[in-house]
Amino acid sequence: MDFSIPELAVDILLNLLNIGILFVIVKLLVYKPVKKFLSDRNQKIKNEIEEARKLQDSANETLSKKNELIEEGRAKGEAAASEMYKKAQEKSDAIIKKAKSDAEKIIAKANAEADTRKQEIIKSSRNEIADLSIEIAEKILEREVSKEDNRRIADEFFNEV
């Protein structure tokens, strides 16, 4: 085993120097750029997350706004529908009323007509019956009876009836 201490010391010093140079090289050429790259990416990811959060917030806001609008629209629509319903009800009520009154009028008219018809028929039938009764009476009594008398008697009879 042949070695001398000064030579070994020189070796150690050279190794120290070598490691120092290597440290500078690795730090400047490899470590720092990669670290910067990584930190840039981290920053970017952070920014993107922040952006995404913001976007989500705004999206949530718009969503809630939309929901509000929809609620409003629904309320409006409901009100309009109820109003329309009311109007329609009123209209239908009016129509029904009118129809009822019309019907009543028609009925009244018909009743009145029927009454006059009845009266007429009664009148004409009374005259006929009076004539017939007079004829019958003439035939039975075979005597002349004054027409005025007979008529009076018949009228009295009918009035009793």
Partner: peptide, 22 residues
């Protein structure tokens, strides 16, 4: 100068790393 072979090799490593790093 009398230098150990391993020192030369380690300087060669440094050179390689320098080239690769560049």
């Amino acid at each position: 100068f009398s230098i150990a072979k391993t020192v030369v090799i380690s300087f060669c490593i440094t050179g390689t790393v320098l080239i690769l790093g560049t």
